[in-house]
Design a binder for these strands. Structure first.
Lengths: 228, 228
DNA sequence: CCAGTGTTCCACAAAATTTTGGAGGATGTG
DNA sequence: CACATCCTCCAAAATTTTGTGGAACACTGG
């Protein structure tokens, strides 16, 4: 009971899961999968990887139990294994952001934020605030992610308006109503860009704090299916 | 905003934290540190590592922001950086246990459990049950970890009775009262062994569900300091 | 200031992971 | 059945990580 060799074996086994999240590309794949299932082909393209390399990384994630697969015809769709995996990913991101200055720097750089500028509180809406306003119909919520991700899961009542199409479909938005845009999560640029675009057009717009990932983890309800 | 290179850089940075928990020996070190601060020397001995190897692993953990150091005279004590790190560790362990059959096998093997035998529910006490009984003074709670760990943090009202000393100090236990033993956490063997030993001596004993790690994460109060 | 202890830094060899291209398997289509 | 598509498996090359001694460094006590 409890000898050296078995102890090492146990920790090595757990480390397999750690190793799986110990590679930037695999985290990127996981980040994509959190938004919905995808084929190997799509994942490879989105993460800028060769097909075989992507496949190899996905095998590592699969053997660590973090993702599952589903075959449909000739394609194989990958998916995160469950909410616990999303929680692990989020916790990893939280620790990284809170504890490592380089991570914050890289994030600010990626999001194009000026770390010296004070955060503009009025540009963000909390989840609670959004729910309250949405109940009264006082706000238009737009999901600026690609349509497939919207279809997989979205904030109840939100409309799909992918960033690509936003500029040409400004007319679809109701007049004189505040717009709240959201995207994948805390590290997603789409909503930032959407809000900038809307502001340039004189539309009063705000960004939802974080995004779908955190909405999910908060245990808030989610809708799925085709756009209305 | 949001170009390929910066995205890769961001995920690679986050992966540094993932890599840190992607090695069995580092997990073992983390597991020790969760129970309290320790010098490099002690850590190396406990994890069965060379001094320089242990030091190297600790550097990786430190650069990932998972542990902090404190100098006291000639020694350097390592410590986990915060509750968020413990939460990450626990989440990793939970996912590993739930999602990977090999992890469960390794755990059962390490703990000496028979995976085919039904779990003996009566052998375990939940945290809630323990708190209720402890309030009435109907139970003797013993902490069977090494004394330093007890001193660093323990369940309020528990007595320190390290497994090493248990056999010779049976007389210290009050007669005719149930004994509940606990140790480090779900993967710690000490409490299992303590309960076995007590049963052999005819003492009615049970094991606390999980251990100090989970107690901590449940947000329950903790005491520290010398043994009473 | 010197000796001694505890720890980190450095450099090298060993081991593991990642990438890549090609072969091969499963499924669907004409 | 032949053929196309999508993906996995395999093996070799490129890159990282790990383990291990010795040198260097920081602090303490004399």
């Amino acid at each position: 009971m409890g000898d050296r060799q078995k102890k090492t074996e146990l920790f090595d086994q757990i480390a397999r899961v750690g190793k799986a999240v110990g590679n930037g590309k695999r985290l990127e794949l996981l980040d994509l999968l959190v938004q919905g299932e995808r084929s190997v082909e799509k994942l490879a393209a989105a993460a800028d990887l060769g097909l075989t390399t992507a496949s190899a990384h996905l095998q590592v994630l699969r053997q660590a139990g973090l993702v599952t697969t589903r075959r449909e015809g000739t394609k194989i769709y990958y998916n995160v294994a469950g909410l616990d995996v999303i929680r692990l990913y989020e916790q990893l991101r939280a620790v990284a952001t809170d504890r490592v200055a380089d991570v914050r720097r890289a994030r600010d750089d990626y999001l194009g934020l000026d770390p010296t500028a004070p955060v503009d509180q009025t540009a963000e809406t909390s989840r609670e605030e959004l729910l309250a306003k949405a109940a009264d119909g006082r706000v238009t919520v737009i999901d600026v992610r690609p349509r497939e991700e919207y279809e997989f899961a979205h904030v109840p009542g939100a409309r799909s308006l992918p960033l690509d199409e936003l500029a040409e479909r400004l007319g679809d938005l109701p007049e004189d109503q505040e717009v709240v845009a959201y995207c994948r999560g805390a590290y997603c640029v789409l909503a930032y860009e959407a809000v900038n675009l809307l502001h340039d057009q004189g539309v009063p717009a705000r960004r939802l704090q974080d995004g779908m990932l955190e909405w999910h983890l908060s245990g808030l309800p989610v809708e799925n299916g085709q756009a209305a």
